[in-house]
């Protein structure tokens, strides 16, 4: 292939798209849906994973103490927790530390008045277990300790999120496969139609000695341009939707919101992945139909 003819060939590819507007638009529409659904599945999964790692090991239990309990008593209680069978370690988490963390996350104003004696939070211990399957028994023993007020753990939530993440992954994979095939089919048909409408030119090109690679280029350009346009549009849509969704989650669950990946961090990857896979699918789609077509010769091309 000679470089000097590439301008001509690329122009031909874009001409194909314009000459074949309806099918090009259909391909772009389907490819955008495919990219967006796939992208949404992957982004959801990434966020779920980020959330799971943010809440740490699943076998963490938080033991809240009586809010009325003095600092000394609260500290002493640690020894009783450590004595229990299934406890690997416990870490004291003072109410002062708690309020500081809230302040950091939610802003000063709200918590300024909640210092010292005004602090409404209880002291707590973060307890790690040796064997998570004995979770229920250990919780019962912990509840029996005098001064333990409430026991909460996120293992249930973590379990749910893990399940959700699995579901999202499976649905995502299924969506990618099905929509990927549909998109390939549509794009290869679009290109096939262009080739059909240009079969006359193709047969002349071949009869004057154009190589298959040369004949193929405008059609590859067509497929890749469709992929490129779809990639750009999907990126714009995805990035526009991502932040509002994350903000909406904030109202539902702050914990999840907090663990979510910010748009500023994720958008270059979204754009790159969409552009890359769009162009790749476009290229493969057109390659398939072009290769089939180029095996034909002369009258066969024209259907004589």
């Amino acid at each position: 292939m000679k470089f000097r003819s590439s301008g001509y060939l690329i122009k031909e590819g874009f001409k194909n798209i314009l000459n074949n507007r309806m099918m090009s638009l259909a391909s772009i529409g389907v490819l955008i849906s495919c990219l967006l659904i796939t992208g949404a599945a992957i982004v959801t999964s990434l966020n779920a994973r980020s959330f799971i790692s943010s809440i740490g090991d699943e076998n963490m239990i938080t033991v809240y103490l009586d809010p009325e309990m003095s600092d000394i008593d609260a500290l002493k209680l640690g020894a009783q927790i450590d004595k229990l069978d299934n406890v690997r370690s416990s870490e004291f988490y003072s109410k002062t530390k708690g309020i500081e963390e809230y302040k950091e996350k939610l802003g000063d104003e709200l918590f300024a008045s909640m210092q010292g004696d005004q602090n409404p939070l209880p002291h707590s211990y973060k307890v790690r277990l040796d064997d998570f399957s004995k979770y229920e028994e250990t919780v019962k023993s912990l509840e029996k300790i005098d001064g333990v007020f409430n026991i909460s753990n996120r293992s249930e939530l973590a379990g749910k999120i893990t399940k959700l993440n699995q579901l999202v992954t499976y649905v995502g994979i299924a969506a990618v496969i099905i929509l990927g095939l549909v998109t390939l089919f549509i794009i290869s048909n679009t290109v096939k139609m262009t080739m059909y409408t240009r079969r006359f030119e193709i047969s002349i090109m071949k009869s004057v000695g154009a190589t298959n690679a040369f004949v193929r280029i405008p059609f590859l350009v067509e497929g890749m341009a469709i992929g490129f346009i779809s990639g750009i549009l999907s990126s714009i849509i995805m990035i526009a939707i991502y932040d509002p969704v994350i903000q909406a989650i904030r109202n539902i669950s702050y914990v999840i919101y907090e663990a979510s990946i910010p748009i500023s961090e994720i958008w270059p990857y979204i754009a790159l992945a969409f552009l890359g896979s769009g162009i790749l699918i476009g290229a493969i789609g057109s390659f398939i139909s072009v290769s089939k077509y180029l095996k034909k010769e002369g009258g066969e091309i024209l259907g004589w």
Partner: peptide, 28 residues
Amino acid sequence: IVFQDFRLIDKISVFDNVAFAMRAIGVS
């Protein structure tokens, strides 16, 4: 090859029809 039915592309000019054979083999 001169085909019996000429095989000219009607969307493009006479010049481009002739040029087509050169462009098809990558001439500048």
